[in-house]
């Protein structure tokens, strides 16, 4: 009889430990989300571009000897009745020089829609050297029925960008913004205005 109670205690302890392990692994699944984002931010492999203030941008030393072609691609996610196009297909810039470009967007629907643009830069290795001081993607963009709008993007390329990169492609995809507002969006982005 003694041995069964010893065994029962041992079972209970082991099951407790295994349940803790199970709970930890469930938590680990969720922990992978911030880990993934941190990993992408540090390595820049997600094509996610950076964000700088005007002051920070001014500290970069222009490299007039190098030229980099920046191409623009725009997409509208399925189901969003918007027009969206870059006003220039590409620009040639020097690293370290702040450059302005403009995009045009319009709502074809007869009701107002809020959109959110998601940027991506190719090649991935260049993403961490590409920063914007102003972008319509920093905030959600409401468009009234039939409204047309031209929005700016100001970007700067860090002169430390790898020497083999002479061409990058910046793409934006507009999605219908999810219902909940994002508190971070309003803080730093300059007002998107024509």
């Amino acid at each position: 009889m003694a041995s069964t109670s010893v065994q029962r205690t041992a079972n209970r302890k082991l099951v407790g430990q295994l349940l803790v392990l199970t709970a930890m692994m469930f938590g680990f699944g969720y922990a992978l989300v911030p880990l993934y984002n941190v990993f992408c931010e540090v390595t820049g492999i997600n094509g996610k571009t950076g964000r700088l203030s005007q002051v920070q941008a001014a500290t970069l030393v222009p490299d007039k000897a190098r030229e980099i072609t920046v191409e623009f691609v725009t997409n509208v996610n399925a189901g969003l009745p918007w027009n969206f196009r870059p006003l220039q297909d590409k620009v040639v810039v020097h690293p370290g020089v702040l450059t302005s470009v403009a995009f045009e967007m319009g709502n074809r629907a007869n009701y107002g829609i809020v959109g959110q643009a998601i940027p991506s830069l190719a090649p991935q290795t260049a993403a961490r050297y590409f920063s914007k001081t102003e972008c319509f993607c920093f905030a959600r963009q409401p468009l009234a029925a039939g409204e047309q709008k031209t929005v700016p993007v100001r970007f700067i390329i860090d002169p430390k960008i790898p020497a083999d990169v002479d061409r990058v492609t910046l793409s934006y995809t507009f999605f219908e913004a999810p219902p909940a507002p994002e508190p971070q969006a309003a803080v730093k982005g300059s007002a998107p205005n024509t």
């Binding site: 199970t22 709970a23 692994m25 469930f26 938590g27 680990f28 699944g29 969720y30 992978l32 989300v33 996610n77 959110q116 998601i118 995809t173 999605f175 219908e176 913004a177 999810p178 219902p179 909940a180 994002e182």
Partner: peptide, 27 residues
């Protein structure tokens, strides 16, 4: 298996509770 349980729970909340784990529009 708990990691799978977490992943499908994220799908569930993405679909019904407005989270954006896997939705590019929400980050």
């Amino acid at each position: 298996i708990p990691v799978l349980a977490g992943a499908v729970t994220m799908l569930l909340t993405d679909k019904f509770f407005g989270t954006s784990f896997f939705s590019a529009a929400g980050g």
